[in-house]
Design a protein around this nucleic acid. Structure first.
Length: 443
DNA sequence: CTTAGGG
DNA sequence: CCCTAAG
């Protein structure tokens, strides 16, 4: 989520600001600021909450590095900066560019100038250019600011600098972060940072954001230590279909071994996968269907050793559900069927469902053929589907013919169909079904 | 990304 | 189940 990323950095920025702010006294404690920022999180309703911070740069600032690094470390520990990509912030170094990551401008361009006096260049600076891990870059930001504040002995100098910073900073990043137009930099070069936390609620889903971020440990974190923080391995591997499928089951068991594990996990995954379609109305089907507990309790995972990698036997309940879904949504809307009926399963991709339906059709037809032949169908055999299922499949196949357009046999089937919903043209019935489905779904 | 079709 | 082409 980009929101999360930019927002994290934004908050982090706010913390930075307030940290350096500590007026005159330079209290090496973040407590007050913590509270301020925490309020940000507590009131997601207000769109803009402004932090007033005076970026004081007069005197040497103690162990700010440690504190800041600690805070940053907390960031990393909490995993909030995990996903921050460096390309989320276009690093531009021009004041004129109002679109670039002003923060990076701020830190790297300006602050480095400020700290030009003593260039014992903390190795953090180098890590910027590496840009391998955004978290690392953030850390360098911390180092830069703190260093500058430390080094700078002259207040007037800093004033000028920060004025220019103000101009630079005026910028609207994705509408997330906004800075008030340059304040007349008075004594302490006050500048205003207003946070747009319109996306805050998105973060607060169970993530101890403020708490974890603001908890200020007292351990010293040296620069080297920080640098040694391994850049979080990126898991943008683009898993293949099979990988995804395989990953599906163990994750459920591992991460969410709780009671409602399945549902929660599915929600998460699904929302991640289809961010737009996250409005899933989980009707009673979703929870009360016998399918869920059936699947959970009896994970009939009959894996034939070699042929199919991971094959799950289709239970009768599943087949029933599949037919329900087809009768409701129509043939061809496999994604909907999967989403609304097989969502709890986790496996059973739309393709699987379609394949199953295809197989069902085949089986039913063959069964009918067998009936004609007079062969007795063995209901107990797993190879033959129960008569109830078969009859239903046949009926459904009449109503919703499988969209094999070129198939001439379907016309025959439709003519035989007693419900007369399916006319000679298969397409009409299908499209009708789809329209109904859409209306039902989008409400 | 979803579906259809073939393997 | 898997893969891939087509919309």
């Amino acid at each position: 989520m980009k929101h999360v990323r930019s927002y994290d950095l934004t908050i982090y920025a706010a913390i930075l600001t307030t940290m350096v702010q500590v007026d005159g006294s330079y209290v090496p404690s973040l407590r007050d600021d913590e509270m301020e920022v925490e309020h940000l999180f507590e009131e997601p309703i207000n769109d803009h909450i402004s932090l007033d911070g005076s970026l004081a740069s007069h005197t040497a600032l103690i162990d700010k590095d440690d504190l800041q690094l600690e805070v940053l470390d907390d960031f990393l520990d909490e995993g909030f900066l995990d996903d921050v990509e460096i390309d989320d912030f276009e690093v531009t170094d021009g004041v004129s560019d109002a679109r670039g990551g002003y923060f990076l401008d701020f830190d790297f361009a300006k602050v480095e100038l400020l700290g030009s006096g003593a260039n014992e260049e903390s190795p953090l600076e180098n890590s910027n250019s590496e840009s391998q891990s955004p978290g690392v870059s953030g850390s360098s930001t911390v180092g830069g600011i703190s260093e500058s504040t430390k080094v700078l002995p002259n207040s007037t100098q800093s004033k000028c600098k920060i004025e220019s910073i103000d101009e630079t900073v005026t910028h609207d990043t994705n509408g997330v972060f906004r800075n008030s137009p340059s304040q007349p930099s008075n004594v302490d070069c006050m500048y205003n940072i207003s946070l747009d936390i319109q996306h805050l609620h998105e973060l607060s889903n169970g993530y101890p954001l403020a708490g974890g971020m603001l908890s200020c440990k007292k351990e010293n974190v040296t620069v080297e230590d920080y640098q040694s923080v391994p850049p979080r391995e990126k898991r943008f591997r683009k898993p293949t279909q099979r990988t995804k499928r395989l990953e599906n089951i163990p994750i459920e068991i591992e991460k969410f071994s709780d009671s409602d594990s399945d549902v929660t996990l599915y929600e998460l995954q699904h929302c991640k996968k289809h961010p737009k379609k996250e409005k899933l109305d989980y009707d009673d089907d979703y929870f009360s269907s016998e399918e869920s507990e059936d699947e959970e309790l009896t994970p009939k995972r009959c894996r034939t050793k070699d042929r199919r990698k991971n094959q799950r036997m289709w239970t009768t309940a599943e087949v029933t559900k599949l037919m329900d879904g087809i009768s409701e949504y129509g043939v061809g809307r496999w994604t909907d069927i999967q989403r609304f009926l097989f969502s709890a399963a986790g496996y059973r991709t739309p393709t699987d469902i379609r394949d199953k339906w295809r197989n069902l059709l085949r089986a039913s037809s063959s069964q009918r053929f067998n009936k004609k032949e007079g062969e007795l169908n063995d209901e107990t055999s797993p190879r033959t589907l129960p008569l109830s299922v078969a009859s239903r499949v046949l009926e459904l196949s009449k109503i919703h013919p499988y969209p094999k357009r070129r198939n001439k046999k379907r016309t025959f089937v439709s003519q035989v169909g007693s419900s007369d919903i399916a006319n000679q043209s298969n397409g009409s019935s299908i499209s009708l079904g789809r329209r109904n489905v859409r209306r039902k779904k989008c409400t």
